[in-house]
Write a protein that binds this DNA or RNA. Structure first.
Lengths: 201, 201
DNA sequence: TAAAAAATTGTATGAGCATACAAAAATGTG
DNA sequence: CACATTTTTGTATGCTCATACAATTTTTTA
């Protein structure tokens, strides 16, 4: 079928771009590098995509889905709100992905999205998803007023840990980041509310 | 004197680079733009500097000094350890500098320092200074074991707030960031230890 | 003031890159 | 098989930029 080969090639290029992204960040992504990584000749990109930026767009979506899958998998095993909150936090730091290169690549995406409206919309979307995920776990035990602050603090902690991981001097591990955030969350919620969250729902 | 004019020109170029950095981030920095911002003709850069990267290096030092001055000024007014800790936190979020453009520029510096050993050394230095500043405020009231975690958490919160500020959707203010971090610090230390820190020293 | 030195200008060069596209190869169709 | 269509290749074009440098202007020196 006609669609098939086009879809396959596009997907191969997106995944090639993803591998190049992880290795070189958003700035190291050249059309030539993307095509090479996908095992094709350099000109092919402009046959299947309107521009490099279009590949970039789909690649970032792909990259985000990889992380979201980690969260989703952990969510399945959770039976109460507390476990779901932990699933979100842990899912944001999969050992296989929490590496300097990758953290740096994500940072470069943040930088780029300040100048590219398409990427900016993606980033906004990712943030909303995270915020709404966190919200749904604690909305029953935290007042509406405090909810926004709680969500923002957790989001800042997650982003902050990734930023720290990008710094070459950092030796933070996946485990360390989760513990750091968990400690703050424990303090913010207190044991009463956490017990409340542990009742199955 | 021979030194004088050279120093002046170098300084002017560094400050031109700084202004361009704040406006366009590290990637928007072209030699032409730097020179233009400094009010000189485009070729002058290679007369006073070995390369663009050398200007970059001095520019980042300059940019950091601007922030450090904010911290230092607030430190002067502090008479006890608690006030000094607050001076560090508040000094890291001066209203005049806590803007989307500037946050983005700093992020781009983080990204770049993964590939430039010179910048990486600078970043390491900035981090050590921050960590040692924070440490000296709380080392008396926090056990040696907990000290590392405390410092790391505060550093992560500071970096995280800046990262969040870089995101276009964020409406965090300077005040909001300080409050967010202060809330976590209050929780971590507890009122007993804070009273301890408030005794003049 | 005349000659030398320093500072500045504007531009040429070449490198790296995205994109377009002509030519070639592969695949499909009758 | 002959022909049309799709896919792929390799390269040409034009752009942005860092850097070097010859030509010019300004300043210093004697």
């Amino acid at each position: 079928m006609k669609r098939s080969i086009e879809d396959i090639r596009r997907q191969e290029l997106i995944e090639g771009a993803y591998r190049a992204f992880l290795q070189f960040g958003i700035d190291g992504l050249t059309t030539a590098r993307i095509c090479k990584e996908a095992g094709m000749s350099p000109g092919i990109l402009s046959y299947y995509f309107k521009s490099k930026d279009e590949v970039l767009f789909w690649m970032v979506r792909h990259a985000n889905r990889v992380i979201m899958d980690e969260v989703a998998n952990r969510m399945k095993a959770a039976t109460n709100r507390w476990d779901r909150l932990m699933a979100i936090i842990e899912g944001n730091f999969p050992e296989s992905l929490f590496e300097q290169n990758i953290a740096n690549a994500w940072l470069s995406f943040y930088v780029a999205s300040a100048r590219d409206p398409q990427l900016e919309r993606l980033q906004r979307l990712f943030h909303r998803r995270l915020a709404s995920n966190i919200s749904s776990c604690v909305s029953d035990v935290v007042s509406a007023a405090a909810l926004k602050d709680f969500v923002e603090t957790v989001a800042v902690l997650i982003d902050g840990c990734w930023l720290h991981r990008a710094a070459m001097h950092s030796q933070t591990t996946s485990f360390g980041a989760v513990e750091l955030i968990k400690t703050q969350v424990l303090q913010m919620l207190g044991s009463d509310r956490i017990s409340g969250m542990m009742k199955a729902s």
